[in-house]
Amino acid sequence: MSTHGWCRVSRWSAPGRVNLIGEHVDYAQGLCLPFALAERTVVEAAVRSDGRFTARSDAEGGGVDLALDDVGPGSPAGWAGYAAGVLWALRDAGHPVGGMDLTVTATVPLGAGLSSSAALECAVAVAADELFGLGLPRDELARACVRAENEVVGAATGGMDQAAALLCTAGHALLLDTRDGSTRQVPFAPADDGLAVLVIDTRVRHDLADGQYGARRAAVEKASAALGMPSLRDATPADLEGLDADLLPRARHIVSEIARVGEVVALLDAGRLRDIGPLLDASHASLARDYAVSCAELDLAVQVARDAGALGARMTGGGFGGSAIALVPVERIDAVTDAVRAAFARAGLTAPEVRTAEPSAGAGRDD
């Protein structure tokens, strides 16, 4: 803990996340299975008495200094909107939130599909909750973070990333039912089975506010409306047969992906982690073909990892770049890593960054 002028400055942090399976279904009332990463975004925060919000980041150029009353949809633009938007959402919900000074440092890679945005939002949320004595439950903090991203930043994301950053526990994946908000901690400790989850950052950066993510969400909502359903959560493959050709593959991904989450959870509950590989493979195929959110670099990483000994692999995150994950026997970690890097070099691509993902704890106080 340190001091900043006359204000007391403290530290909070929130993790990035990997979604083991259940991609692009959080806005369709589906099931997701993320786990938190060891990489975290840290905020040093202090209360201001003048109703202003300031923020600076070691990873982003520039900073912001504006009145809290000026925060709202579209303001501030850029990365600071994720942080300031949380304060706006809490205030809009009637909570007594005032001005804040914020300094951000992060080890969650930006744009890598590991939810650096939600890590920032959730670190700010737990800081504000404590600094202003709100005492809010984590699910309410998560809703504020989602509103920040949807309404202030303008990215039409669901709630999986924020729930993961706030609710995950070490050694577990979080089964999140986005229809009713219920959660369950599912044991997930790959090292205990002689396995590791590799995260392969393709270094292709994406921006979820650029319209592609929103277009997929709009297609899903249009499909559910065409079927006369509130969501695709309970739709069956047979229900989809009458959909227009442009909506059918998008809806087919949602329905099949939700089913795959249930199958993976059943295998994990049965202690059969090694058997989930084919379901990871099927998820990637669905995301690449039916949902069209993969890219050449992700497809290459996934295929090469499998060929080098991964039990299964898939893209993770919103797509259009970012990261892939591979479930790998520990004795094959070096072989898979070397094979992926060599394949990228042969293709003339930027060298990927490969790291091991350890299921870790959610957001909290850092000092």
Rank of each mutant, 00 (worst) to 15 (best):
L120E: 11
V261Y: 12
L243E: 10
A301P: 02
C122Q: 03
V330N: 12
V330G: 03
G362T: 06
D366H: 12
R17L: 00
A238I: 04
Q162P: 07
D269A: 15
A251T: 04
R314T: 04
G30H: 11
P34C: 10
T41L: 11
R203G: 03
A301M: 10
L195G: 12
D65G: 10
A310P: 06
A308L: 06
Y27L: 14
E353F: 01
A55D: 00
M315C: 09
L311C: 12
H253K: 00
G322R: 00
L120I: 03
A93F: 07
G16M: 09
L267P: 11
D366L: 15
L31H: 09
L243I: 01
V43P: 14
R346F: 07
T103D: 09
G74S: 06
P249S: 07
F132D: 02
P73K: 11
L87M: 04
C32M: 12
L110I: 15
L20T: 07
S323L: 03
V264R: 10
V186P: 05
V304M: 14
R143G: 03
R233M: 05
G271E: 05
E331R: 11
V71S: 14
D244N: 13
P34H: 01
A170S: 14
Q29A: 12
G78C: 06
D177S: 02
G22M: 06
L349C: 07
A351F: 08
C145R: 07
A148L: 13
A342D: 08
G181K: 06
A238D: 15
A189K: 13
A296T: 15
A301G: 08
P109V: 07
L136Y: 13
A305V: 01
A301K: 01
R365E: 03
A266D: 06
P15A: 00
A324S: 07
Q303A: 15
L227I: 08
D58E: 13
A46G: 15
A282M: 05
D180E: 08
S231A: 07
M315F: 11
G62M: 06
A339D: 11
A357V: 11
R272I: 03
D101F: 00
R56E: 13
G72C: 09
V146K: 10
A251P: 00
Y291C: 02
R147G: 09
T236H: 12
R365D: 05
D234F: 11
G242E: 08
Q212R: 12
G154S: 08
A335S: 14
A251H: 03
G211V: 08
Y291I: 00
V43W: 01
D58S: 15
G111V: 10
R365N: 01
L240D: 02
R138F: 01
A36T: 01
E151D: 04
S116K: 06
L68D: 04
S224R: 13
E149N: 08
